[in-house]
Design a protein around this nucleic acid. Sequence first.
DNA 1: GGTCTAAACGGACTGCGGTCCGTTTATATT
DNA 2: AATATAAACGGACCGCAGTCCGTTTAGACC
Lengths: 198, 198
Amino acid sequence: MSYIPIRTGAEPERRDAARNREVLLRSARELIGECGADGLTMAALAQRAGVGKGTVFRRFGSRAGLMMTLLSDAEAEFQGRFMFGPPPMGPGAEPLERLIASGVERIAWVLEFGELARAADAAAHNRFDVPAAVLWHRHLEMLLRNAGVTADPWLMATSLSATLEPERLLHAVRVHRISPARLTASWCELVSCVVRAA
Amino acid sequence: MSYIPIRTGAEPERRDAARNREVLLRSARELIGECGADGLTMAALAQRAGVGKGTVFRRFGSRAGLMMTLLSDAEAEFQGRFMFGPPPMGPGAEPLERLIASGVERIAWVLEFGELARAADAAAHNRFDVPAAVLWHRHLEMLLRNAGVTADPWLMATSLSATLEPERLLHAVRVHRISPARLTASWCELVSCVVRAA
DNA sequence: GGTCTAAACGGACTGCGGTCCGTTTATATT
DNA sequence: AATATAAACGGACCGCAGTCCGTTTAGACC
């Protein structure tokens, strides 16, 4: 298990390191465009970027770390929307409205970035304890509480986030040809009846 | 992708093959007892059983296939109970009763055999299309229909089975110290409100 | 510019799942 | 018993993620 450096703004990385990181991210996006996220190999990435394989792992720690880095902008933007954005997803709307909107937007997000998210999940040692997953879970749990759900909101949030996992959603869409509209309709149904029961 | 032979009763395997299969299964259980399911490697299994690695893959196709074979007795027994067993899980009870009982029993089952199931899932290329998963999904879907759920029972069954996945359940119990009782209580809550909404 | 050091680098190496293919063997047939 | 043949066998081999460690270099300090 390797040490993954935590960057604070105070101690910037060396110039060559920063340059290599940019080259690696650019190359990774190119490779994924050509071969898909599952087709990217760490060795191929190193070669394309013109660095050694050790450098790739030094920068990103693991394949999962690389995928999460590639996702981080999209993830941060999404987090911003459900935490600070405008209603109905952001604060200001009723809890049930926010729950519905959060799920609907999440489904759209997964359909756009899900391949990367799926690759990150597949490579991660424990996908449930990664910061983005914890934040998302807490968000759902909080909305459930605010909506008056008293019966174990923590586990209910677990069930809800299980429903929205990239692997499952992509499987439903790609293998079973479920339309996005059906996914969102079912989400609304599910979350409504959970809240209504409270 | 290798060819996985389907055994019909009509064409029995050769005697040496049958003997090796037994030795391999016994050795696999021993190794799992010593190192855990995640600690078992195919090469170590081959060595312990005194056969070549090729033989292991010929018998089971893949690591996932091995794990599923090891699970198959427990899986079949569970299937028998929800399909043909006595109420409340088997036929005869009300649909909601059966849903609740099925989930409660499933949670207990996962807590007992989940490590193997988790290992099988992790190694499988697509865990959702494996016969046992399909059967379980169909069972939940049918019960939802019988309980009067008209709004997309297929996707509802997907959400429900996501809730009961070994990886999630084991994570809840082992990392977050959630008690089995809490898991079953939350399941009852969830499934009740889904049905009540119908 | 010279020196020093912590950081970054690179690629050989390990361990694992999975495949390939030349060799061996169980079993049916004569 | 001899033969034929399909099946089973075994282990060298491949690709990949991840590690290790000797070498190089950025950049700070003089």
